[in-house]
Deep mutational scan, measured.
Amino acid sequence: NITNLCPFDEVFNATRFASVYAWNRKRISNCVADYSVLYNFAPFFAFKCYGVSPTKLNDLCFTNVYADSFVIRGNEVSQIAPGQTGNIADYNYKLPDDFTGCVIAWNSNKLDSKVGGNYNYLYRLFRKSNLKPFERDISTEIYQAGNKPCNGVAGFNCYFPLRSYGFRPTYGVGHQPYRVVVLSFELLHAPATVCGPKKST
């Protein structure tokens, strides 16, 4: 009989979020998941679920829940969905086509923008091939755009693969920082350890 609540607040209220190319993952297990707390949290810009209804989450049990978190621009949030393409979905964070879970995003301009620009948040701009679902690539190898080998030196046709967002408070909404948490639900042939409040007695 599990009684402790799942530590969703640790994920959602973290002081610093990860850059999207180096997205953070927390495994959540052996706890009671009260999703209504999240669902009623006012400032969400997006709360979209795939393969599961957000209002039914509290009735369900899962083997594991993974909480992935990172920061992207407002106009990139739409790429955090199954079957998407674009710089983020291709080179930074890719969801599987059969994704079961929820994508939760909110504007973090007050936290993550600075006058003069916040350059701490990076994304991958160049990559030889697209990421596989949930693949994480933190390499900083110089990207070779031409035929000539770069030998690890940036220059003509040789690019550092990461780019900084440089968030400023005055940017338009599409270019403002958004914090994103992706909850993915794993249902294995194993005992369920993460259940909603109704199922955990």
Rank of each mutant, 00 (worst) to 15 (best):
N1V: 07
N1G: 08
N1Q: 09
I2C: 13
N4L: 07
L5Y: 11
L5F: 11
C6H: 05
P7A: 10
E10M: 07
F12I: 05
A18H: 09
A18Q: 08
Y21T: 05
Y21K: 03
A22Q: 11
K26L: 07
R27S: 08
R27Y: 08
S29P: 07
S29L: 06
S29E: 09
C31E: 07
V32Q: 08
A33T: 07
Y35K: 06
Y35S: 07
Y35G: 07
S36K: 12
V37S: 14
L38V: 10
L38K: 03
F41E: 07
A42M: 10
F47V: 10
C49P: 00
C49F: 01
Y50L: 01
G51M: 01
K56I: 07
L57H: 03
L57I: 07
N58R: 09
N58K: 11
L60A: 08
L60D: 05
L60Q: 10
A67S: 02
A67I: 10
A67N: 05
D68N: 01
D68C: 02
S69T: 09
F70P: 01
R73M: 14
G74M: 06
N75L: 07
V77Q: 04
S78M: 07
I80R: 02
Q84A: 15
G86W: 02
I88Y: 01
A89R: 02
D90P: 02
Y91W: 07
N92H: 02
Y93T: 01
L95V: 11
P96D: 04
F99P: 00
F99L: 01
F99M: 01
T100A: 06
A105L: 03
N107C: 06
N107L: 03
S108R: 01
K110T: 11
L111P: 06
L111D: 14
L111A: 13
K114F: 09
K114E: 14
N118P: 07
Y119W: 10
Y119F: 12
N120K: 12
Y121I: 09
L122K: 15
R124H: 03
R124F: 03
L125T: 15
L125Y: 14
K128E: 12
S129F: 08
N130G: 08
K132S: 10
K132N: 10
P133Q: 04
F134N: 09
E135L: 02
R136Q: 09
I138P: 10
E141N: 13
E141R: 09
E141F: 07
Y143C: 07
G146L: 05
G146K: 08
G146M: 06
N147K: 13
K148F: 10
K148M: 11
K148Y: 11
P149N: 12
P149Q: 13
C150E: 06
N151P: 10
G152A: 10
G155A: 10
G155C: 07
F156Q: 15
N157V: 05
C158N: 06
Y159D: 12
Y159R: 13
P161A: 07
P161N: 07
L162C: 04
G166Q: 13
F167C: 02
F167E: 05
R168F: 10
T170D: 15
Y171F: 13
V173A: 13
V173R: 12
H175W: 12
H175D: 15
H175R: 10
Q176E: 06
P177I: 02
R179A: 03
R179N: 04
V180H: 00
V180G: 00
V180W: 01
V181N: 00
V181P: 00
V182R: 00
S184R: 08
F185C: 05
E186T: 09
L188W: 13
H189P: 14
H189I: 08
H189K: 12
T193P: 10
C195K: 09
G196A: 10
P197E: 12
K198W: 11
S200P: 13
S200T: 13
T201W: 13
